[in-house]
Design a protein around this nucleic acid. Structure first.
Lengths: 210, 210
DNA sequence: GTCTATATGCGGATAGAC
DNA sequence: GTCTATCCGCATATAGAC
């Protein structure tokens, strides 16, 4: 990997890996438009307009509108999975409850803070073409595996009481993901507060001892 | 209200209230198409085709495509709210835990069993025009109120331990609603099973005593 | 009420100048 | 790399015959 790919602070500069700058502007505009109106209701003219460019400019940087969505989805899923994995690994020698709480807290915080991106990433999956969709579905499976693993470990360690691990895993992920649908920046809660609330709720769901 | 509106067994014949039959066929076709591809990606030609009619036939029964979505949304939300309210009222003299479990079980079962309808109803809200959207948002507020009320009662009765009633209410509804996104008829679980699982998970979330 | 035919406008994508 | 101009097809909706 070249040094150019290791932009410092890439985690805090979300689309930093997208270059050149015009391509990034278009992508950011697309995220906003897709999140507001949905993929199909968004026109390439709208995207280009938001980026301060002509409709044709989009096609210099992206072959199709679908490619733009794919790029967004891919980067977003990579980031979400990275956050989940990092949190799960952070306290590898702590309790499963710690790992689960941290994972949920981080994952939820991301879905709240970056709810525009998350909304596109999580709810426009069906707008992708078959190959692109398959690629993204695979990434989701990995998120599922991370959460299921922690729950299984907690059960094995006697920390959790979970009659249905697979079902509970689905429920936990569903709960976290859906934050991106209802979360509103103007609302009463900060992403941190929602993360803390959800971490607590999930610990209750798995019957973690207090 | 005329007797004609009180079709017996209307709860089990979902779109029974939609007449004449051609209008109902179009509406059922629209639900399927919207659920599969999303509102904006669905063409009126597709809807009419599924109903075995020409594109023009749609406009005899509905003024616009949006009116069709509104009709679906309205009926769906009415039904969901009705189910929630009925379950909440059923054991009015039982414990709050019973009421909450029954409500969640019924609400989830509906979102699973009728996940095509639910998907449209819950995720295509933004495709509605401003007035229609406002009308539907009001119905959602009522669902929220039903759940919040039960949780508040459980807390007051000392049955539940809930530090954040408003936040927990949002989480519970979000969890139930999102079932319509991931539920698949081909999957491992029946609607009844998901309902039972979720009722248990929600009781855990509110700290109901076993 | 339903059809065939069509008006009308918009959206994705391209051509070619600069 | 960006623009202006435009092609082409498709989608909503309507007109008018049956």
């Amino acid at each position: 990997m070249s040094a150019a790919e290791e932009t410092p602070g890439a985690e805090d500069m979300p689309w930093g890996e997208v270059t050149p700058e015009a391509a990034r502007r278009l992508l950011v505009a697309a995220v906003e438009a897709f999140a507001e109106r949905g993929y199909h209701a968004t026109t390439t003219r709208d995207i280009a307009g938001r980026a301060g460019m002509s409709p044709a400019a989009l096609y210099i940087h992206y072959k199709t509108k679908e490619e733009l969505l794919h790029r967004i989805s891919r980067i977003g899923h990579d980031r979400a999975l990275e956050i989940l994995t990092a949190a799960a690994a952070a306290d590898a020698d702590g309790t499963a409850a710690d790992r689960l709480a941290d994972s949920v807290r981080s994952f939820v915080r991301w879905h709240a803070e970056r709810h525009t991106t998350a909304r596109v990433v999580q709810y426009e999956l069906d707008a992708l073409g078959p190959e692109h969709r398959a690629e993204i579905v695979e990434l989701r499976r990995r998120s599922d595996a991370v959460v299921r693993r922690i729950i299984n470990e907690g059960v094995a360690a006697g920390e959790f009481d979970v009659p249905d691990v697979a079902g509970t895993t689905v429920a936990v992920l569903s709960l976290c993901i859906d934050v991106s649908r209802w979360f509103n920046t103007q609302g009463r809660r900060t992403p941190d507060e929602v993360g803390a609330l959800y971490a607590d709720l999930v610990l209750r769901m798995v019957g973690a001892q207090k």
